[in-house]
Design a binder for these strands. Sequence first.
DNA 1: CATATTTACGCAAACGTTTTCGTAGATTTT
DNA 2: AAAATCTACGAAAACGTTTGCGTAAATATG
Lengths: 337, 337
Amino acid sequence: MAKITLKDISRELNVSISTVSKALRDSPEISAKTKAYIQDYAKKYNYKPNNIALSLKNRRTRNIGVIVPEIVHHFFSSVINGVERTAVEYGYNVIVCLSGESFEKEVKNIQLLANGSIDGFIISLAKETQMKEDFSHLNEVINQGMPVVLVDRVTDLVECDKVIVDDLEGAYKAVNYLIKKGAKKIALITMPDYMNVGRLRTQGYLNALKDAGIEIDPNLILKIEDLNGGYDKIKNLIYSNDIDAILAATEFFAVTAMKIAQSKGVKIPDDLSVIGFTDGIISQCASPSLTTLNQHSEEIGSKATRMLINKLDNTGEEVEYITHIIETTLVHRESTK
Amino acid sequence: MAKITLKDISRELNVSISTVSKALRDSPEISAKTKAYIQDYAKKYNYKPNNIALSLKNRRTRNIGVIVPEIVHHFFSSVINGVERTAVEYGYNVIVCLSGESFEKEVKNIQLLANGSIDGFIISLAKETQMKEDFSHLNEVINQGMPVVLVDRVTDLVECDKVIVDDLEGAYKAVNYLIKKGAKKIALITMPDYMNVGRLRTQGYLNALKDAGIEIDPNLILKIEDLNGGYDKIKNLIYSNDIDAILAATEFFAVTAMKIAQSKGVKIPDDLSVIGFTDGIISQCASPSLTTLNQHSEEIGSKATRMLINKLDNTGEEVEYITHIIETTLVHRESTK
DNA sequence: CATATTTACGCAAACGTTTTCGTAGATTTT
DNA sequence: AAAATCTACGAAAACGTTTGCGTAAATATG
């Protein structure tokens, strides 16, 4: 009933373990008759080699460790989706760990998985880690020779492969679009600067305004810590200023802003245009549906996986780290003119 | 630079491997002096035992295999969230595989992981598997002694622990509420009967109508295959019938229905009340926000994990399978009176 | 028919652990 | 001082594989 091993077969068939192993791997060392004999038996009892034993022997697990801050979040679950699909394509499994935005959990997860459980990492940094700017746990595993690919939430202080979204260009593109459609007072709802994605989106916003000769109003820039909150701050922004467009760094911020504006009687997109980052289900379900910057999150995961597996398959070569930049796409819906 | 092993330490310190192992596990067999000596060295070079070797030795991996149809989906990502949080609590890792609703992928994933990679499964069945009613792959691993917990998408044809939502009662409760608020023509947008969740929700709907003495109109019952589609069918339902309430089996169906109704000029909740299953972000972001049946998905994952680990820790005991039922909670928002 | 070659298999090491058992040498007991 | 007991360590097996090498027996060669 339980799983059968080479040893079981060898005992039952009165041959040596190595003969069984070779027969099952179709080695020319074994006679055709014996092979058939052993293979039949193995098939009958559904023999499958034990992955753990193979991992130990080969010193590779064919497991990829993925560490993300959250999973109940369109962007990250899409990234994982991309990772998983690509991983299975190459015969890898995916071990998912969540940091919950906590530095400590991120460190613990990495150290746990690094002890032989996986061959390489795909990581999106916790907020806390980005704030602390302590990346020693990452540099440690990299020094031990374990390949790491950072995605989206990255840092310059770790040298490794990276896949990032062109946040600056995306924000620039979005703001520029709003300006072209006649917006003059454009607000930005984003994340704190210590997060690279927040910083870059802010920069793109500023650049676009500057290039258009629009003066920057600091009151129109909102930096929110809690990615699922900020209701009061957004309400305050909308009620205290006479804005005609908003660029939001997440779809949640965008929808929150829309609902607040609507309850104030503002018509979207006539009186107010809204664009949000992340092209998720929220954007499609919102009323009006939300114009977004698609970050191609699944492709991010897929690309990161291919980069990681490339490193895993080509060990010993001179290491050269690549940062792959994924362009955003502006998806037009009802929240903009 | 690379990971250090017991053998490395033993060579460097001129003691045997077993002495090193014992010293690091603080065995009384080793003298205090030698222990300190070895422990210092191990700490200095950051020795950590290799998980794979431990797994092979102990014949347990401390990995849990999770197989779900999709991950970019509030319900399933929440379940995984619950699994992960509880798993780490007990020192387990989570290996996530996606079936993509495909029978073949589900079988492949299970067989792959079952060869030693994990200690037990948490599975939500693929649509295709439920349609085919072929569960031999599940019964096979269970027969091999591997604990399995089925969640949400379950079947009576497999004997194992299960965690399910009280879909029947939930649907009954929701419809009953709609009736109490004056609804007479209540539509149901659900999934095909071969899915246990679809079947049960339909049954709850029917029971509630029957108990209230309302005649059942088959035209008001819509069974949709594609969980992310059904636009045309829903549109047809809304335009061809004069309904005053809808119970939808997913929040996506609910929001789609709301948008179609709104574009027709119907006022929600005045002219039409809507309740959806799954209390996700979509429900909060919709306008009006959606009244839902919270399925406590994270708790489902957490409970399933505890049941699984309980089985893992108490092997050898007489097996007794439990089906744990999680009650839904009606969350009142703007889409109902 | 003696020698050389091939065939077909088994032995043993290795991957990195843990743990049981054996045993020199030190210490205690009578 | 001889015997008994500890102390502190090492050897080896085990988990389940793969694989290089050694080698009888079978076959081919001269």
